[in-house]
Design a protein around this nucleic acid. Sequence first.
DNA 1: ACAAAAGTGTTACAACTACACCCATGG
DNA 2: CCATGGGTGTAGTTGTAACACTTTTGT
Lengths: 263, 263
Amino acid sequence: MENNLQVSLYKISQECLPGLSIECVILGYENQQLKTLVFKFKGELSWSLPGGFIKKEEDVEEAADRIVEERTGLKSLYLKQFHVFGSKNKSYDQMGKYPGQLDSWMEKFGLGENQELKDWFSKRLVTIGFYALVEISEQRPEVDPIFESCEWISVEELPDLFLGQNETVKKALEHIRIQLHYQPVSQALLPKKFTMSELQKLYEILLGKTLVRSNFQRKMLGLDFFIRNEKKKTGSANKAPFLYSFDQEKYQEALQQGIGLRL
Amino acid sequence: MENNLQVSLYKISQECLPGLSIECVILGYENQQLKTLVFKFKGELSWSLPGGFIKKEEDVEEAADRIVEERTGLKSLYLKQFHVFGSKNKSYDQMGKYPGQLDSWMEKFGLGENQELKDWFSKRLVTIGFYALVEISEQRPEVDPIFESCEWISVEELPDLFLGQNETVKKALEHIRIQLHYQPVSQALLPKKFTMSELQKLYEILLGKTLVRSNFQRKMLGLDFFIRNEKKKTGSANKAPFLYSFDQEKYQEALQQGIGLRL
DNA sequence: ACAAAAGTGTTACAACTACACCCATGG
DNA sequence: CCATGGGTGTAGTTGTAACACTTTTGT
């Protein structure tokens, strides 16, 4: 195990571009909450966003795809870079609560005195932030050797992540909020078929305010890129809502122009 | 001269982060046209966006500021990263029309057989794209030793720039267009005091469509973040328009929410 | 006085808000 | 048949589009 880790890290330091990393805010939507996938370091209390490095013979966007896939086990429907974090102070040597922990960290994971690894991880990092939008129910996150576990946590209740990562999440959310009318955000976060209530809840969370149910419904359906499917059996004592899905062609076209709604 | 160039390039290769560059789309507004600053290589017909590298002890944003300042001679009012170009094929070895020109290029500029420089410039590049918005009338662009001249050229009439740079400009414009209601774009491109016509022309260019003068004026003034100043003497046979400026506080506040206008 | 551009008014129409009402479903 | 949540109707308000009208300025 420890050996495997050393080998795979060594491989990274050989195959990847130095000093340039990717960090992913993997967002999903579950139980009417926007959640992000965070990983817990082995034997520590600190949490981290999943990240990785870019192979020398790999496009940056490909790298992000690969990294998300390696972490969640499934291909993300929607992945987008949103910001470069280029503070001169950022490096893996600043992991955890205190700086200068690289030595003890390497020891803990049985990485010994490998100078190449040490050089690699003590480098200043410029990080490209991506956000991925996935449907939680479809994802089976796998856990890396250096991590103990992972968890979907509501973005409202995130613990302290190391270094700037809480800021990273915040920035990703800002970005998504602004791009809501230009990018297929709801499509990526919702299942193929969904009810108007589900769509509304998502909008409410992303916009941070409550919306009037009846008006929301008419405005959305008025946009004319939804397909009405069969009704959903809720199993509860109320009218069965219709399930809707996106009309790909019309949806994409509308996004191109920007969805001009006042919500 | 050639020696100076060699020294300064050598210095870059020593002081900067390898494989990571910055490219700037410096936009200005003049004669009712949106223009970008492009540089012409010495003795060649090809044009390039201004760019540079990030020093090891420098934030990425600082680097962008410095690079814009080095090129235009003035500090930009507004500078923002908008995209990372991470294609695995991008490198300075692909300069000009054909790949593999690095050797002849180095020879032309009297850089000789300097292996360190050659290594530096043959590396794969990941490029962070920034756009800068400046007021053209205030700028006095200076020209780098490797360039022959620079010019403000309308974004509609750009010549072929090398590699992906026409795409870079296009992407920057898309970005600005989407962010128009969330970022102080017009403030940065216009002089401190401006007329409603000037503002309208700018919007028309950014949005790519014509707007009705009278309605535009009322909608804008209705937003309530403009200050009306003295009238402008146009020197022509017509009514003198008011000069407006931005009420900083109210403008920023409105941008925070997003300016909810249908134009 | 005239041309040109700025600024204001007007009217019809579209969109949005708020709320009321009816409909379907399972207990 | 009632509680619950889905779906539609409507009146009042606000925002927008199109175009006409008035005002100001230099020639």
